[in-house]
Amino acid sequence: MIRRIGETPRWDKRYRVRPGAYAILPLKGRFLMTAQMEPQVDVQLPGGGIDPGESPLQALHREVLEEIGWRIADPRRLGAFRRFVFMPEYDLWAEKLCHVYVAHPVRQITDPVEPDHATLVLSGTDAVDALGNDGDRMFLSRYLHQR
């Protein structure tokens, strides 16, 4: 059973499962994060949806590159959580199945190509405080406490 984090699903909505892969990216004692700037600033672990026919690891590499412009190596799966949300950019009620990894950032090769995204480098405490969803916050907090 994968733990639900956040809002209880609404009985009056149909949710579509939307799997995704997200990364905790430690960099010299700090963490690479992404900020989605529109419709309001939302700080997140870099990552996103897994496309049909794509593995979680393929999606992780692609999404991190799109959102923060970095290549990563040695991803290790930490676990998963699910959350029920409305995704206005897709006009979709989604059950997001979020697979969380920790990976080594290798190098930045481009600016973010995902529209309205900016790369942030934050301390562990600042990153936990800034994260916009409880699942990301839970996994980063666990990672920090295990180090």
Rank of each mutant, 00 (worst) to 15 (best):
R142T: 06
E95H: 06
L32F: 02
V106G: 14
I24W: 01
Q44L: 12
M33K: 08
G124T: 04
I2Y: 09
D51I: 01
S55F: 05
F81L: 11
T125D: 10
Y22N: 12
F81S: 08
L144Y: 00
V64M: 08
L45N: 01
E95L: 12
V41Y: 03
H99W: 08
F84A: 05
P56H: 11
G132S: 12
G79V: 05
V102K: 14
T8M: 08
R76A: 10
Q40W: 02
D126E: 15
E63I: 04
V64T: 09
T125N: 05
T8Y: 01
L140G: 00
E66V: 09
E89K: 06
E95W: 03
Y22H: 14
R4L: 05
W70A: 06
L65M: 15
Q108I: 11
D126C: 06
R4P: 08
W70E: 07
V128Y: 03
Y101I: 14
L65I: 13
L25C: 12
G79D: 07
Q44W: 06
V17F: 05
P88V: 06
G79E: 02
D111E: 13
E95A: 05
E7A: 14
S141P: 03
G6M: 04
N133R: 12
H61C: 02
H117P: 11
Q146C: 07
Y90K: 07
L57F: 08
P75T: 02
D74I: 04
D129R: 15
Y15A: 13
P115Q: 01
F84D: 09
V113T: 15
P56M: 14
L120D: 08
D136R: 00
L78R: 08
F139N: 01
I5Q: 09
R137P: 09
G20C: 15
G124F: 02
V100G: 05
I5R: 13
M33D: 05
D111P: 02
G47K: 01
C98Q: 10
R107V: 13
G53N: 03
G53S: 07
I2A: 12
P105I: 06
R30M: 10
R142G: 12
S123T: 15
K96V: 13
E89I: 02
M33W: 01
P9R: 08
H117S: 10
P88S: 02
P9W: 00
L57P: 11
A127E: 02
E95N: 03
A21V: 03
R71S: 15
D129V: 04
D74E: 07
Q40F: 04
E95V: 08
H104F: 05
D12H: 10
P52V: 06
A80W: 00
V128T: 07
G47N: 07
R137H: 06
L57T: 12
P88F: 00
R62A: 10
R30S: 11
L131P: 03
